[in-house]
Design a binder for these strands. Structure first.
Length: 475
DNA sequence: TGCGATT
């Protein structure tokens, strides 16, 4: 844990640090352990595949069919090199689809033409899909997303609409679990130019009956955009902090620090075994997303007040939303509290160096009192948390029984909080920096650097280390 | 206003 936190502290200054965490994609690395066809034992029987073999995506598979059930169906087109049913990474649940590689390219082509949309497996209401996996084609630049369709329109209707602009390789209406159209579709052309021509001709060109606005025709999300979108959806579902609610241009330090810290925190907790599958998934997504952001995707210039355009899938609220509880670590409650918010509150984190605040508006006197209400995870907490990341004995301790001031040099003072800011908000905002588990000096630094000057509405926070007690009484 | 069941 402490190692991770050290990494985070560095990451704050060095955006590249997350790119070394092994999150990179590994195309074609799907292990053969799940594969079907490799004969154990005699090496001479290990199948070889053509260099130009095609990995096929198989969709619309009943969930009660596993590799051995599927094998006979596909074997008639050639020798199978690998067949893997896709399963949920955490729950192991059959996802209703598979990847299939034949030893020979020709077999794949035969299977595709014989099976794709040609038959429907028992229990399915849509025909089987047999087509090159996305990883084979790299076709994002010729795939269109079509929105604002009439929900009655079929694949054929959409094809007719788009066929004049090029050769359509794939046309799929997006449907909900009930099979009803979601009013949108993917259309993949053979070339980027064809796709662009369709956009030029069709986007906004007409309004389908029942649609709320004119036809949308645009390039489909890239991998990165898709990851971001999923991340956002999941964060929303879980009621978690939503990193994308905060525009990176304006709040880069905060967002990055949060994301990195949350990713590390959740990952280490996950290793300890406390996280439920959803949260573990969230952790993985979070890491992926942090990595993506480090690569600059979300670094597009935009601020709440700039009036700039918003990239697809990213919302830019006028006021940054306040992170809500993470929902891990057992931190579901909040400390007891005296209400009536002062303009400044002392907040305890675990840090060391004195750090001069540099807010331009920092004329406020210190006599604003450290009145408050300190959500502080006492000394017992870090130790207990340390266990978690190692072996995972007990769940993390809950909220501390009583308010306590942290060691000297570890307490932050926050000025210019909004009136409506209560402990809950305060705690949520600062929790990632120190309340939970981090007792190294870098945490306080991270929090200060990320949060000092952070704008909430019309105000800018002032965050600095609380002065030692004796230094606080100049008179 | 909706981006697939894709290692």
């Amino acid at each position: 844990m402490y190692i991770k936190m050290a990494t985070l502290a560095n990451g704050q200054a060095d955006n590249a640090s997350l790119s070394t965490n092994g999150l990179g994609s590994s195309p074609g690395s799907a292990g053969h352990m799940n594969g079907l066809s490799h004969s154990p034992g005699n090496p001479s029987t290990i199948p070889m595949k053509d260099h130009d073999a095609i990995k096929l995506f198989i969709g619309q598979i009943p969930r009660n069919l596993d590799e051995k059930d599927l094998k006979p169906l596909f074997e008639e087109f050639g020798k199978i090199y690998e067949l893997t049913v896709l399963k949920d990474r955490f729950t192991g649940m059959h996802k209703g689809c598979a990847f299939l590689t034949y030893c020979e390219r020709e077999s794949a082509l035969k299977a595709q033409s014989a099976l794709h949309e040609q038959k429907t497996l028992p229990g399915m209401n849509r025909p089987i899909q047999v087509k090159p996996a996305d990883s084979e084609s790299r076709g994002e630049d010729r795939k269109l997303f079509v929105g604002m369709l009439n929900k009655q329109q079929s694949e054929d209707d959409v094809r007719r609409l788009f066929e004049a602009f090029g050769n359509i390789e794939e046309c799929t209406i997006l449907r909900g679990p009930d099979g009803n159209s979601k009013g949108c579709a993917f259309v993949k052309y053979s070339s980027h130019a064809e796709a662009q021509a369709a956009i030029n001709a069709l986007h906004g060109s007409q309004t389908m009956p029942g649609a709320s606005s004119s036809l949308v025709v645009k390039f489909a999300d890239t991998d990165k955009e898709r990851t971001m979108r999923r991340m956002q959806q999941m964060a929303g579902q879980m009621g978690m902090f939503n990193p994308m609610a905060i525009p990176f241009g304006a709040y880069g330090a905060y967002a990055q620090a949060l994301m990195q810290q949350q990713a590390a925190l959740m990952a280490s907790v996950a290793q300890g075994g406390y996280l439920n599958p959803m949260a573990a998934f969230a952790a993985a997504q979070m890491q992926q997303m942090a990595a993506l952001n480090m690569n600059g995707l979300a670094a597009a210039p935009m601020t709440p007040t700039s009036g700039g355009s918003t990239p697809p899938g990213i919302t830019a609220p006028a006021v940054p939303s306040i992170p809500s509880p993470i929902g891990v670590n057992g931190f579901t409650g909040l400390p007891p509290q005296a209400n009536g918010q002062p303009a400044a509150e002392a907040v305890f984190a675990n840090g060391i160096h004195p750090y001069p605040a540099q807010s331009p508006t920092a004329a406020d006197p210190l006599q604003q009192a450290y009145a408050g209400v300190q959500p502080y995870a006492g000394p017992a907490y870090p130790a207990a948390y340390g266990q978690i990341s190692q072996a995972f004995p007990q769940p993390p301790p809950m909220i501390p029984q009583q308010q306590r001031e942290g060691p000297e040099g570890c307490n932050l003072l926050i000025y210019h909080l909004p009136q409506e800011f209560g402990d809950a908000e305060l705690m949520q905002m600062f929790l990632p920096f120190g309340f939970v588990s981090f007792d190294n000096p870098a945490s306080a630094q991270t929090a200060i650097q990320a949060m000092n000057g952070f704008q909430i509405g019309m105000k800018r926070l002032k965050v600095q280390l609380k002065r030692p007690k004796d230094a606080n009484r100049p008179y």
